[in-house]
Simulated assay, not measured.
Amino acid sequence: MSIEVTEQDSPYNNLELKSTSEILTNINQEDKSVATAVEKVIPKIEALVSAALEKMKVGGRLFYIGAGTSGRLGVLDASECPPTFGVPFDLVIGIIAGGDTAIRRAVENAEDDAEQAWRDLEEFNINKNDVLVGIAASGKTPYVIGGLKKANELGLVTGCVVCNAGGPVAANAKYPIEVVVGPEYLTGSTRMKAGTAQKLVLNMLTTTLMIKLGKVKGNKMVDMQLTNNKLVNRGVNMIIAETGVNKEIATQLLNTYGSVRKAVDAYLVSIH
């Protein structure tokens, strides 16, 4: 049986004998290939975005499932959507094999249970209006395969982000995204190039969806949550740029309306 690309031997050897500079340079050299690999699958990403957008426009949610690094990346992307785009916390949901404990500490054999993913998803009352994306560098994680199979049976839109071509995860996704980045610098360490590729794709997926769902104006995060001073200052500056008011008035508007979008809209209505 052939070895998956993600498990193939690194083209570099005797790593422990290399200088720090050589290690860093070689890792960077490998990382440069990741964006090119993602570029090749943009049409596949577009297809998943289009299918997901139709569901989310009518109240559907986006779910990620994965194990290990892949699961953590899904949780990360999901958790960043509410503060960035001001959407509810249950619009994009990341689920990791082994539960939230596994975000910080590996849970033994969690990824090998093909039935558990659907049990985890059922806690959120997942239904045919929702979208399920499986994330698995290997492309063969049983936890992810089981979740996708059940979702397909019930007619959900399913997608995946994997880093080997032709695996069972992709075979069970209606909209597969296979980003083949090649062997890792450290053999089999898919937290490296594979993880970077998955992060790039998830960034593209949710950012594009949120733009298309009207959560961005111009190039600004007008619905972002104002959870710290940096973001409040950013919001004030966005209001100044949109309206031409001074900093004092912009601050008052933001304090009154609680979001950049509402503040700008209210001001523009008041002057017309």
Rank of each mutant, 00 (worst) to 15 (best):
S10P: 00
M192S: 03
Y175S: 04
G244E: 06
M56G: 10
G74E: 06
N255H: 13
G146W: 09
I126H: 00
L200N: 09
V87W: 01
N246E: 11
L268W: 06
V107F: 00
V180K: 11
I42L: 14
G182N: 06
D31E: 12
A117W: 10
G94P: 01
A171Q: 13
H272N: 15
V161D: 03
V169H: 04
K18E: 13
Q252L: 12
L132K: 02
L156N: 08
E80L: 06
K215Y: 13
V107K: 00
G188A: 03
S259D: 04
K262G: 01
V232W: 06
M56H: 08
Q225I: 15
R104F: 13
L213Q: 03
K215A: 10
A67W: 05
L24I: 15
S19F: 00
E46L: 12
G59A: 11
I65K: 03
P11S: 14
G235A: 02
R234A: 06
A102N: 04
V5Q: 10
V236S: 01
N152P: 01
T256N: 14
E4M: 08
T206G: 04
I249P: 00
V179L: 10
E184T: 13
K199A: 12
A110F: 11
N255V: 12
L24N: 05
L186C: 12
G66Y: 07
A47N: 14
A171K: 12
N246D: 15
V131S: 01
K220E: 14
E248R: 11
F124C: 02
G195L: 06
N203H: 12
A78V: 13
V260A: 04
C160N: 09
L156Q: 08
A241F: 04
I240L: 07
I177Y: 12
L17Q: 14
S270C: 05
L48F: 07
V5N: 02
E22A: 11
I249T: 14
K140S: 15
S10Q: 03
R104V: 09
K212S: 05
G60V: 07
V264P: 00
V41I: 15
V245N: 05
Y175C: 04
K174H: 11
V49F: 13
I145H: 11
K44M: 13
A37P: 00
E115Y: 02
A137H: 01
E46K: 14
A197M: 05
R61V: 09
K44G: 01
V222I: 15
V216F: 00
I45N: 07
E111Y: 01
N203F: 00
K199D: 14
Q8P: 02
L148I: 09
L132V: 11
I249A: 11
S21M: 09
D100C: 05
L91H: 03
G66T: 06
K193C: 10
I103Y: 07
M56K: 04
K44Q: 15
D120H: 03
A151C: 08
E248D: 13
T196E: 02
